[in-house]
Each structure stands twice: as structure tokens, then as C-alpha cells.
Simulated scan of single mutants.
Amino acid sequence: GDFSIDFVEGNDKLKDLKGLLCQPLESLISRITGIGFGLHIVWRNWKRISRSDILVSTVDTCGLPLSMLKSMGVLSQPLIYFSQGLSDRIERLPDNFINRFVKTKYIKWIGSANRIVVLGNGAVQSMEKTFDLSNGKVSAVHFGVDDNFWSPGDMPEIKDYILSIGSDQARDYDTLLKATGKYPLHIVTRLKIKNISPSHNVTVKSDYSDLELRDLYRRCRFVVIPIKDISQPSGQSATLQAMACGKTVILTQTGGLWDSTVMIHNNNCILVPPSDPDSLRDAINYIWQNHDISVNISKAARKTIESHYSSRQFANKLLEYINETSREI
């Protein structure tokens, strides 16, 4: 069916009474779990939220307070809740009374959502186990990129550097630095990277527009996305953007790899085990020294984006979930 859509998002620069009143609770929860709790966002936009027929939360920061209010009966609308890494954060908490109490509350809150959506097959079981969710309540929808914008372009001049992109805490730049040696490496991240020695040939920057990022993808030799072994599908957007630009991606094969039936080693990507600098070094040497193989993988990568991971396919799957939920009202 057709829907009219309204968007709600936070504004950290806005200072008002609602934000001040919510801050103590939000700060406490954030300190315990490491994930935000945007109750003030919900409060500020309550009129628009309460008038909606279906709610779709795309981040845990908003999904948690919405699910809390739904479990309390304050919200009655169906809730589709996208979760990205929450189960990993909760499972890593030390075992003490406070953390067990928080987990109990989260189980109750998240269980009130009509559908939980994660961005990869590997995260489904983790969400079900951590939050005691019944089979079928958690679904995977594969993230998609704009394959018209993220594209190979008109054969730009390739330069001799390896590119790595990402700022989430699951990035494993320590392993990457151990593996790259003296290869020229360009890292795009807001993270503070330690252990960069004078022998490393590394550039670290973060302030790029999408047009500039696309140019970095197009001109690099290949892309490396090093990930710690978690169930969250980390590194997804950077990997798919690079593949859409027709680049070979060396990617860590973690428990959160979004679809192991599509992401195939030596076909459309190169997969390496986590926290293994020797294997990563071998993969980097292999792709650097075998241009023809890299070209074949790059072509297959672009076709994979077109057939599986475009933003159109992502939107169609989300629309399918919305239609299913609307029929349940």
C-alpha cells in the first residue's frame, strides 16, 4: 500500500528542558551499556510519534525508549525495530546485579516490538539468544547501497595505495597495521589509532564528502575492512560501497558476516579469519601481486551489488515488512 512518511531525528545542539530532564537517566543507561538511550528525542517528537500508524526505528538509541514505552502500554502502535550490535554490547557486560537488571529490562522492552530487524544473517541467532526472542520475531534484511552513485566511473587513474574505511569500535586496525608492513595505506576513520610506527606508510584522515570518498575508492588498488569477531554485521556499508565501485575487498570473516552464501571467498571478495595478521598479510600480498585476479574479483563484486545489495532491494524488503505489519493492525 501507499504510506505517508514522516522522519524524526535527534538534534544534539538543541538545549531544552526535556533534554535536561532526560539527561540523568540517559547518561546512566549509556554508561552501563555503551549504547545511547534517546528518550529526549521521543519526548520532543511525541505528537508526531503518537499520531503515527506504524513506527520504524532504525537505531537502538531510539528503538530502546520506544520499546520501553510500548511495553508500558504508553505506545500502542506496531513497532519495527532495527538493532545494530545491541546483543554484542549486552553480552560483553560484566556479570553483576546492575547489568543483570538492565538485561532483564531490555528483554521485556525489546520483546514488545512487533518485529526486530538486523542487517545480517549472523546477527539473528545472537538477538534471539540474548533477548529470549521466539523464532520468527527476528528477521534479517541485507543492507543496500546506491549503486548509481557508488560506481566504478570512467576508468580513473589507479594509484598505489590500499584503502581502509570505518569508525565503529569493531574495526581491527591493530591487525591491519601488523599485516600491511610498508605498503602505502590510507585509513579513513574518526578513531584514534595506536601503534603506528615510523616504518608504517600510513595516512589517517576522516573529513571527506561522499564524492571524495567515492574518488578514494575508485583510485585505490583495493580495500581492506578489518573487523573484530562479533555477531553484528560490521563493515557492511564500506564493503558494499567499495564493491559497488568495482573494487576487490579483503574482509574479515566474522560471525556477523551478513550473508555467507553470497559473500564468497576468491569469487567476489577475499575473506580472512579474525585477529590473524599473517593470513591478512598473505591476502594483501596475493591481491597486490596478482592484478588479473583482482580485476576478476572486482567485476564479480560489482555484479553482486547489482543483484543482491542495492538500496532498491533494501527498500523493497523494508516495505514488505511494513505491509506485513500493517495487516496485523
Rank of each mutant, 00 (worst) to 15 (best):
N201L: 05
D210V: 02
A301N: 11
H291K: 04
N266R: 15
D210W: 02
I225V: 14
K247F: 09
L257E: 00
V295D: 15
P277H: 07
L319R: 12
P226E: 12
D147A: 03
N195G: 08
D259R: 13
S275N: 15
V138A: 01
S197L: 07
W150K: 00
T203Q: 01
W43E: 10
S76V: 02
C245F: 08
G10A: 11
L177F: 11
S167K: 10
S294Y: 07
V262K: 11
I49S: 08
S231W: 15
R100L: 10
W46V: 00
I284G: 01
I107W: 05
P152K: 09
G63Y: 02
S151Y: 04
K247Q: 00
L119N: 01
H308K: 15
N121S: 00
S57M: 08
I187D: 10
S167A: 13
I322F: 14
I107D: 07
P274K: 09
I80T: 08
Y321V: 00
S311A: 10
L318Q: 10
N201S: 13
F37W: 15
F143H: 05
Q169N: 13
T61Q: 08
I270W: 04
Y173Q: 05
V138L: 06
Y286T: 12
L191E: 13
R100T: 01
N266V: 06
D88T: 01
N148A: 09
R302N: 10
R89N: 12
V74R: 08
P184A: 07
